[in-house]
Amino acid sequence: MTVLRHLRNTKGPMSIKFSQEQLNKVQEVIARYPEGKQKSALIPLLHMAQDTFGGWLDAPVMDYVAELLHILPIEVYEVATFYSMFNTKPVGKYLLEVCRTGPCMLNGSDEIIEYIKSKLGINEGETTPDGLFTLKPAECLGACGYAPMMQLGNNFREHLTKEKVDALISELTAKAGN
């Protein structure tokens, strides 16, 4: 687990525990699957954990999820590192995932990525020094007819242009300032 070892030393800024409301939700999710098959709830729970604990999955967070499901921590690590939506390293407050596969490329996604890079002064996979934005090129997100596009949190921003990127970044910067 060399990949994860450095995460062991990081101290999360918050205590790692779901609220009572979230714990009720955890039970509800587990109940969707047959008895004894609670491991099926792992991916839904990792989504919850990532949304709750800072946008990425620190090792102690994954251990906590393992505890909730009565499975081994390694079973959580192997899943978290397999799926591209789970971040095993810290990311900025806003994760800009710009699609660059075939159909988006045909509609100019490369220019959009270049523009974001120069505007924010970061490279692919990097985070701005203020911790606000991370740029992550993504592979096909299922919005090919509305290209170019990016995923931002739980939503898609489609038909991107340089102007729309400008507006989005000022909107998010302002939101973070409040």
Partner: peptide, 24 residues
């Protein structure tokens, strides 16, 4: 049941593995 970003999970046996809470 929401997945987490893996094209391979569209293959039916990978989807089943993923539904069981494993790698796809």
């Amino acid at each position: 049941h929401r997945g987490a970003g893996a094209y391979i999970c569209g293959e039916e046996t990978a989807l089943i593995e993923s539904l069981e809470g494993k790698r796809g």
